[in-house]
Simulated assay, not measured.
Amino acid sequence: MDVMKFIKINPDTTLTGVHCPQCGSLPMIYHWGLWRCPVCKTTSDTAHHQAVEDYIYLIKPSITNAEFRKFPHLTSVFSASRLLGQMNLQHGGEKKNRYYIKP
């Protein structure tokens, strides 16, 4: 089911980024292995989990490294790959065609 079409929301108008688990502000900044909130200064190493779940639920049932980097505003291919790999997601494809799905 395409949730975005069902509730009539244009995907281009959605706010992207990682929400702060403490204060809910958007976006958190990823630096040196931690997500940091610029508002309340909270740090988290797993704050991106909710962002990935939101993407999979709202946008489409799989996510690639490039899509993941765009959604939470990451620039590093390697950081994105490491973060996705730590989430116990099922994956398919090889190298540039790798995608991740929720088990």
Rank of each mutant, 00 (worst) to 15 (best):
R36N: 13
R36G: 00
R36L: 08
C37R: 06
P38N: 07
P38H: 11
V39R: 08
V39E: 09
V39K: 09
C40Y: 06
C40D: 11
C40Q: 03
C40P: 01
C40A: 02
C40N: 05
K41F: 00
K41E: 09
K41H: 08
K41S: 13
T42Q: 15
T42M: 10
T43Y: 04
T43F: 01
T43G: 00
S44A: 12
S44G: 01
S44P: 03
D45W: 00
D45C: 07
D45T: 12
D45G: 09
D45A: 15
D45E: 13
D45S: 14
T46E: 08
T46M: 07
T46R: 10
A47M: 04
A47F: 08
H48P: 07
H48E: 03
H49G: 00
H49Y: 13
Q50H: 08
Q50V: 15
A51D: 01
A51Y: 02
V52L: 11
V52H: 01
E53M: 13
D54L: 05
D54N: 06
D54S: 07
Y55H: 08
Y55G: 05
Y57F: 14
Y57D: 05
Y57R: 14
L58P: 02
I59F: 15
K60H: 07
K60C: 07
K60R: 15
P61W: 11
S62A: 12
S62Y: 15
S62L: 03
S62T: 14
I63A: 03
I63T: 06
I63H: 06
N65K: 13
N65T: 15
A66C: 00
A66H: 04
A66V: 15
E67W: 00
E67R: 04
E67S: 07
F68W: 04
R69S: 05
R69V: 02
K70E: 12
F71S: 08
L74C: 08
T75H: 07
T75Q: 11
T75E: 11
S76H: 06
S76R: 07
S76L: 09
V77D: 08
V77G: 00
V77C: 01
F78K: 11
F78H: 12
F78S: 06
F78I: 02
S79R: 03
S79W: 09
A80D: 00
A80Q: 05
A80N: 09
A80Y: 03
S81E: 01
R82I: 13
R82A: 12
R82M: 03
R82C: 01
L83M: 08
L84S: 05
L84E: 09
L84P: 06
G85N: 14
G85E: 02
G85P: 04
G85I: 04
M87R: 11
N88T: 02
N88R: 11
L89G: 01
Q90Y: 06
Q90W: 10
G92L: 02
G92I: 01
G93N: 04
G93W: 05
G93L: 12
E94M: 09
K95V: 06
K95Q: 13
K96E: 09
K96A: 10
K96N: 13
N97Y: 12
R98V: 12
R98M: 11
R98K: 11
Y99E: 03
I101L: 08
I101D: 00
